[in-house]
Design a protein around this nucleic acid. Structure first.
Lengths: 147, 147
DNA sequence: TCTTACATTAGAATGCTTATAATTTAGTTT
DNA sequence: AAACTAAATTATAAGCATTCTAATGTAAGA
């Protein structure tokens, strides 16, 4: 069993344990998220599945994404542009976003625990998590700029 | 002259140098942003100024925010919730956001240059900047939860 | 198999933001 | 100081992502 398949199985187990039903549409949305290396928008998921489920409503995609969010299976990424992106990679990682084309790439870095601790001390917050986003120009767009 | 007033003057100079006209509405939006310790939404700015400018259109607020964004006088903050927030503090700082009430508080920490460098090496991006957001529960909401 | 609470669907509604076209005005020129 | 013009403001309409609603369908347990 490949790693994405394994993660999918684990996610399905988590869903069942939360008392959530596994419908074909829900399964498909989850599967698509799991095997996607990009960070798709709700609409991208909808379009990707319309061959398989011609009658599926956009609302179903949104409903399921919310279920996954509530359970903690996916994370919502919001940037300046219009629509949210969804990330099912729950392992610790950060994102680097291209200012030109909007592409999002994951990269790994030791978790910044000391920043969380400092933030707690300075602000009195009870800290739960953090996000780090780096911005720049991807290699593709750097090439484009030269020509 | 207080520090916010000084920053306002500098910002006005920057605007003039960019060939942007200083209208009363534009001045008021900028002034409000500069003296606000919160990170207001467009609508909050609009409502805050409606006594002074009863005929001002929301579009004017948005137009001016875009002008300030383009020139680099303010930064746009987007989170899961519906509307963008605007931050005129251009000095390096990070944000901590309350999961309960949505309050945003600034905190300072040495810039994470080494993360930017690593990201460049790993991804091949040409990095321009980065953002760090910490999430948690603010002191107020911690108190609320106890009672 | 029956039942029922939960999921899906289609379409309307909401809310933030942007576009449009007419009017007004800031800042320069005469 | 008056005239000019490009830019800004205004009111309103439009756009788009997301959520809501009510009716229909279905997964999973009794």
């Amino acid at each position: 069993m490949t790693v994405p398949e394994q993660r999918l199985q684990e996610a399905l187990t988590t869903l069942k344990e939360s008392g959530v039903r596994i419908t074909p549409q829900r399964h498909a949305v989850l599967e698509y998220l799991m095997q996607s290396m990009k960070h798709p928008t709700a609409d991208e998921i909808y379009k990707a599945l319309e061959d398989k489920f011609p009658n599926m409503s956009v609302a179903t995609v949104y409903n399921n994404l919310r279920v996954f969010l509530d359970i903690g299976l996916v994370r919502e990424l919001t940037y300046g542009d219009s629509s949210s992106r969804f990330d099912c990679n729950t392992s610790d990682h950060y994102h680097i976003i291209c200012d030109e084309c909007g592409k999002i790439v994951d990269f790994h870095y030791p978790s910044l625990n000391e920043v969380e601790q400092l933030a707690e001390q300075v602000t009195g917050f009870d800290v739960s998590n953090h996000r780090l986003e780096v911005y720049g120009t991807c290699e593709n767009c750097q090439q484009m700029a030269k020509h």
